[in-house]
Computed example of a mutant assay.
Amino acid sequence: MNAPGYRSVFAPGLFAGKVIVVTGGGSGIGRCTAHELAALGATTVLVGRSAGKLYAVANEISDDGGLADTAVCDIRNEDAVKQTVAAILATHGRIDALVNNAGGQYIAPLATISARGWDAVVATNLTGGFLMARECYTQALQAHGGAVVNIVADIWGSMPGMGHSGAARAGMVSFTETAAVEWAASGVRVNAVAPGYIASSGMDHYPPEAAHMLRAMRKTVPLGRFGTEAETSAAIVFLLSPAASFISGTVLRVDGARPQVRMGWPMGLPDAQAAEHGAVKAFNGFHRGTVPKVLSP
């Protein structure tokens, strides 16, 4: 029996006939976003390094009645990116939008990060995103317009303990602003979404000794909880939608006001009644979403 289906807040058929590329589509926020876009009528092309993960998500989308394709690619490899984008165009005839979601990092203080480790994180979180955006633009979007959404991170105050990722994500914010100006004449909008502490499968990739820290992070968020993959996906979908047609060069934060926490202002986390209020209650529209193992009771 098929799954119940994605419970999106957006209009059915919003992206009917559109082809949208989602990097890092095999897990986490990318997987969730691909499901929502497909539920809204798009053909989603999942890009990543793990064929097995991509096929699994594509099969989920197909089982739910959506359209999905896969493209195995290391986005850090310039030639591979060029060939992958060309192959997508050859198969589908068009690319209407890109969700630059692929990324990764590891916990380490700056003094211990090697040049190789630094380069690996920057290549994934900055260079790879640039290459994907450039090729989607030059091979497709430049001719007929479209939208790019780059996924960055909660870098306000920077990222002690993950300085390589913070530097790369800050670079992607600057790239977003520059591309928004340079590509506007072609009818291309470029924005970014900055997830804060999101309960996503990516949390399970950190070492076991980080589990206590990960579980405690919600206590530093004024709204008193983790965000959901679906809440992040909704921000991405909005920026891709016609409703955002005069929004470009901006970063939409999905973080529960965490960067605004300051010494001197008491952290009063919402009580149970406030947490259930419609304005701040967690939105879980992803019918296939699961709680990260590190957060499971």
Rank of each mutant, 00 (worst) to 15 (best):
K82G: 12
R49A: 12
I61N: 07
A80W: 08
S27M: 08
G52D: 15
A80E: 15
L67I: 03
G28F: 05
T84I: 10
G66R: 03
A97V: 14
A39N: 00
A90R: 11
G41A: 07
N59D: 15
G41V: 04
A80T: 08
K82W: 05
A58Q: 12
L40G: 05
D96R: 05
H35K: 11
A58G: 10
D69Y: 00
A39L: 02
E60Q: 14
N77T: 07
S62T: 15
V85Y: 01
T84R: 05
D96L: 09
R94N: 15
D64C: 11
G52W: 05
A90V: 01
T70C: 06
D64T: 09
L54Y: 09
K82R: 14
R31A: 15
R76M: 14
A97T: 09
E36D: 10
T84C: 15
D69K: 00
G30I: 04
A71S: 14
A42H: 03
A56C: 03
N59E: 14
V47N: 01
R49G: 13
C73D: 06
D64G: 15
G48A: 14
A58N: 06
A90Y: 08
K82P: 00
T43F: 05
A34L: 07
D74F: 10
T91A: 15
G65W: 09
T33V: 12
L98Y: 08
N77H: 15
A90N: 09
G41E: 11
A39F: 01
G65E: 08
C73P: 11
V72N: 10
C32F: 05
G48M: 08
K82T: 14
G65P: 07
K53S: 14
T70P: 02
A71D: 08
L40H: 03
S62G: 12
A42W: 01
H92Y: 12
G30E: 10
E60V: 11
N59S: 13
L98E: 08
R76L: 13
E60K: 02
I75P: 02
D63K: 05
A86L: 12
L54G: 09
A71W: 01
D64L: 13
A58I: 01
T33A: 08
A86S: 13
V85P: 00
G66T: 06
A42E: 02
I29S: 01
V81I: 03
L98M: 12
R49Q: 14
D96T: 10
E60I: 04
A87L: 09
G93K: 09
R94S: 14
S27Q: 11
D79G: 14
R49M: 13
C32P: 11
A51H: 15
V85D: 04
V57E: 07
L37M: 12
D96C: 03
D69M: 06
H92I: 07
A42L: 05
A68H: 01
G26W: 02
L40T: 06
L37A: 05
R49E: 13
C32N: 14
K82Q: 14
A80C: 07
